[in-house]
Design a binder for these strands. Sequence first.
DNA 1: GTCTGTTGTCATCGCCTGTAGACATCACTT
DNA 2: AAGTGATGTCTACAGGCGATGACAACAGAC
Lengths: 213, 213
Amino acid sequence: MSKAATPRRRDAAASRERLLNAARELFADRGYDRTTARDIGERAGVDPTMIARYFGGKAQLFIATLHAQDGPNPPADLLDPERLASLLDRIGRHGPGPVFQAAVRPYGDPDAQDAARTELQRRVVAPLRRRLKDDGDAQPELRAELFIAAFIGVVLARSAGTFEHLAAASTGELLPLLRQLLAPPDPAVPGAGRAVAASDEHGQQHHEPEADQ
Amino acid sequence: MSKAATPRRRDAAASRERLLNAARELFADRGYDRTTARDIGERAGVDPTMIARYFGGKAQLFIATLHAQDGPNPPADLLDPERLASLLDRIGRHGPGPVFQAAVRPYGDPDAQDAARTELQRRVVAPLRRRLKDDGDAQPELRAELFIAAFIGVVLARSAGTFEHLAAASTGELLPLLRQLLAPPDPAVPGAGRAVAASDEHGQQHHEPEADQ
DNA sequence: GTCTGTTGTCATCGCCTGTAGACATCACTT
DNA sequence: AAGTGATGTCTACAGGCGATGACAACAGAC
């Protein structure tokens, strides 16, 4: 139990830490399902079976990953342009985190998924909801969730490389577009924007037969 | 080779069709990776090994699923409110299709993923890009992709049940919000909206230490 | 009626996953 | 120096996956 002044050759705490770091990195850009325990072990330089020993299993390692290093935890809402920029930048460098992925992708383990979703609520949805409420938004809960879902779609598609121009665009190009995407309905214009009005050239026709899934 | 007037007890074409239908349904709401060949066989009432026999494998069955029943194929862009409404409605009933999922989720099989992404481009990105271009948009490619990524984020999060209010919201409530999300920048207002300006109460402060992945 | 190719059924293979358990090795206490 | 618990290493299991190949049952041609 002595405070490890000398670097111990066999150090459980160090192994734990290396597993935790490796897991966080891998989960961040491959997601939960697609990172294997063996991958984590290899990246950490630690035997994969240690995951079970130290954390109880892959799912619990993932949860530990979520709670570890959430830092000083100053969750700013996405309407803050600084926050948006830094978030976008970090995602560009480290990949979208498992927290964001959890919103849109099914997880193999329900416990892990729940934990990630709870964290998503706490970190990003709740702050934005509060902000919208403070701004007097009519339906802050719905708009906050819609907003963040849209944001997640963009960053995930971006880092997935699905869309050519989206992936190639710099964060500098993206920021103004994203801000506009997240813009609140402008109360100054009574008509609530021209997008809705511009679409009335089509009648009540139905598009039933088309079927793209 | 006689034209099957009498319903044959052993009918390869019928088995093929049932596999195709079962596969489309399952892929639609579980995605490619999470639907197993055995699941498809069970739902179709056909032995799973027939998949390999008739299609060559799971991946090629998936691709066949994409190409089959793309119907009269009138791809309308998402700015058409009718199209948006019908799309939202169908997703609500049948789940998000594998095509949408491909934009944001990694697929186990690269061939399947490529096929899905190509289809996504053809069916929804290209039409919207053309529409934006016709409308004189400054960067139609980027905006179209951004737009659709956001839309996919919303519908996927919605059907994943991640967000309480988003999942509970009716398509009627969602439609105006989505339309506004997809609204083009309003050229009538030179300031390009108040959202950007409203956030300048915070200075150039950095949020470095925070770390939500 | 017999023959032949098609269609359906079944067992099983090879691979990958998470993880449990046996064993070896080290560090620290006495 | 000996003992003892903590730590690391290795093998292997049970389950799920897609896919293969051997075999059985049927339908149509002759």
